[in-house]
């Protein structure tokens, strides 16, 4: 060992012994940081729930469960019932799901079982990604200026009152918006079906259609259910696009062409103008309901999805 090496080594060791205690201190500090970050993230989510609960306390006290069943939304008379908005949210979300499911499923099946590569598959994937990236405000804007006139002319032909805005318009926009998510959920679900199961089907001489109908769909049924649930979770909390085309009418819609209001859009429209504690509290309670529904929907959907993945 040369002289230079020895001196270098000594220098190193001296340095290290000095470092000893400061290393353990930094080590402890680092772990403390990590735990603090994790606890902070957890507290934020808990904090959201607690704040919503406190914020809506007045309204919960005043109306109780009636809040959900009552359809009177009359700020001047200090009467607040969320039923019109709950119905507005449920009807637009369900309609949107109904419209988007065939498209999402078809594209997932097409991309994962028919077209695995090539320009068309590239274009489709690219389009789906692009659709997912468009901000919801732009969907709403486009819906307001392009879709609303189209729906209006249809309404005229069918003999409805030509609002243009309403449940149907909101559902179409929502459907377009959730197609990317629903489609990627569907691909995920199809991926969960074991390859050998599919191949066994083909080996028996089944056509592609029969393999899909008799093997893939039954196997994936749990996943399909949770995928639909999660897609619903996406749709029901959507705010801007719906707000711009639903018509903002605080009564229960009579048919799918009636203007209505959704839970998210009534908050968006009235929150800054809400005068009086009870009014604000009622809007916050609608927010609380949104939070709780999203909790339930996502918890069930994720649980099923995870179980499917483990099963595989």
């Amino acid at each position: 060992m040369t002289q230079a090496e020895i001196s270098c080594k000594d220098y190193r060791l001296k340095n290290l012994d000095k470092q000893g205690s400061s290393i353990t201190r930094k080590e402890t500090l680092f772990r403390f940081f990590l735990v603090t970050a994790a606890i902070t993230s957890v507290s934020i989510v808990m904090g959201i729930f607690i704040s919503l609960l406190f914020g809506s306390w007045k309204s919960i006290n005043e109306f109780g469960l009636n809040f959900i069943w009552s359809s009177a939304w009359n700020p001047a008379a200090r009467q607040f019932g969320a039923l019109p908005f709950i119905i507005g949210t449920l009807s637009t979300s369900f309609l949107a799901l109904l419209i988007s499911i065939p498209f999402s499923f078809a594209s997932a099946i097409y991309l994962s079982l028919y077209l695995k590569s090539g320009w068309l598959s590239g274009l489709l994937k690219f389009s789906v990604e692009l659709l997912a990236g468009i901000p919801s405000i732009i969907y709403g804007f486009w819906g307001l200026f392009v879709l609303v006139p189209i729906v209006r002319s249809i309404e005229i032909k069918l003999g409805f009152i030509p609002y243009g805005v309403g449940v149907a318009t909101a559902s179409i926009i929502l459907a377009i918006m959730i197609i990317p998510f629903a489609s990627s959920m569907a691909s995920e679900v199809i991926k969960l079906v074991p390859q050998d199961l599919k191949e066994a089907g083909f080996a028996m001489g089944a056509t592609r259609f029969e393999v899909i109908k008799n093997i893939i769909l039954p196997y994936a049924s749990g996943g399909i259910f949770s995928g639909i649930l999660l897609a619903f979770g996406r749709a029901f909390g959507e705010t801007m696009a719906v707000t711009m085309v639903i018509g903002n009418s605080n009564i229960i819609p009579k048919n799918i062409f009636s203007p209505a209001n959704s839970m998210a859009s009534v908050i968006a429209n009235e929150f800054t103008e809400a005068r009086g504690d009870l009014y604000l509290s009622s809007l916050i309670e609608i927010g609380l309901l949104l939070f709780i529904i999203s909790f339930i929907v996502n918890a069930i959907g994720n649980r099923i999805m995870k179980r499917m993945t483990v099963k595989k």
């Binding site: 190193r12 290393i23 353990t24």
Partner: peptide, 8 residues
């Protein structure tokens, strides 16, 4: 000793 020092 400190494990770090040993590993070095």
């Amino acid at each position: 000793t400190e494990p770090m020092l040993i590993r070095r």
